[in-house]
């Protein structure tokens, strides 16, 4: 167990006060590692919350340069950084927020080629990617390595979050076995909607790592900020799932 220093006790005091979490929960976070892929409108606020909470080691995978159209939601970026690598800004901002946390920036998006290496770096994975190919690669590797995967997504004024625990819950391929027709890399969303999904996903990870609460296992949390409706939908494993089913 990673013991806390007096300074860390002071920094994390408010969350150590949370019943059931305590110093033991904080020590579990300190000793944990997380992969966040990618780190834009969803992964950015998520990584920020994990860093602030004191998850000991963050691996951030995100390729590409900052575009003006990223700035409505990618809160780890700054207006003066347009045209420069997103990952540099992400790493810098996270280290500024919490220098006690180790942050490794990887200027890559998850793919079939690198998923084994990237997933292998962390205890838990957060899927914040826009492309289904990346998400399916992450899902497959998490199932193979037996690592929990928190799935978060959004569209327009709506969001969805679920937590995949290999061998126990449906995986992403059980839930959505195929890419939706004509899915586009860019889609409508307000930044606060993605940040909301991010915070729910961050809490899923913090709960799993600290061993508190009940995760969204076998449930899809769906919300619609147009009406502020939140709903949990039961989801089931598919026996014929090519990733986590009996024949996989």
């Amino acid at each position: 167990m990673a013991k806390l220093t007096p300074e860390e006790r002071a920094v994390y005091e408010w969350q150590i006060w949370v019943p059931g979490f305590g110093e033991a929960g904080q020590e579990k976070l300190k000793g944990a590692s997380a992969l966040v892929s990618r780190c834009g409108g969803l992964g950015g606020p998520l990584a920020q919350s994990l860093a602030a909470a004191g998850v000991g080691r963050l691996v951030i995978a995100h390729d590409g340069d900052l575009k003006p159209s990223d700035l409505n939601r990618q809160i780890l970026q700054t207006a003066d950084w347009v045209g420069k690598p997103r990952i540099d800004s992400i790493v810098r901002r996270l280290r500024e927020l919490n220098p006690r946390v180790e942050v490794e920036g990887v200027a890559e998006n998850v793919s079939e080629e690198n998923s084994e290496r990237l997933v292998g770096k962390a205890d838990i994975v957060f899927d914040c990617a826009p492309l289904f190919a990346e998400r399916f690669a992450m899902n497959r590797e998490c199932i193979r390595q037996g690592k929990p995967l928190v799935e978060a997504a959004m569209f327009s004024l709506e969001g969805q979050v679920t937590t995949i625990i290999p061998g126990k819950t449906p995986c992403l391929a059980c839930l959505y076995p195929e890419t939706p027709p004509e899915w586009k890399r860019e889609f409508p969303v307000i930044g606060a909607v993605s940040a909301l999904a991010a915070q729910i996903a961050a809490m899923e990870g913090i709960k799993l790592l600290a061993g508190i609460g009940k995760p969204l296992a076998g449930e899809l949390l769906y919300y619609d900020t147009a009406s502020m409706t939140f709903q949990k939908i039961p989801i089931a494993r598919r026996p014929d799932c090519p990733v986590c089913g009996k024949s996989a």
Binding site: R38, G40, G41, L42, G43, D127, C128, A129, P130, L131, F132, R135, A152, A153, M154, F155, E158, G159, Q160, L175, Y176, T179, P180, W183, R185, E186, F187, V189, S194, A197, Y222, I233
Partner: peptide, 8 residues
Amino acid sequence: LLSAVSGG
């Protein structure tokens, strides 16, 4: 009716 969505 709910369709699959993603991050970004």
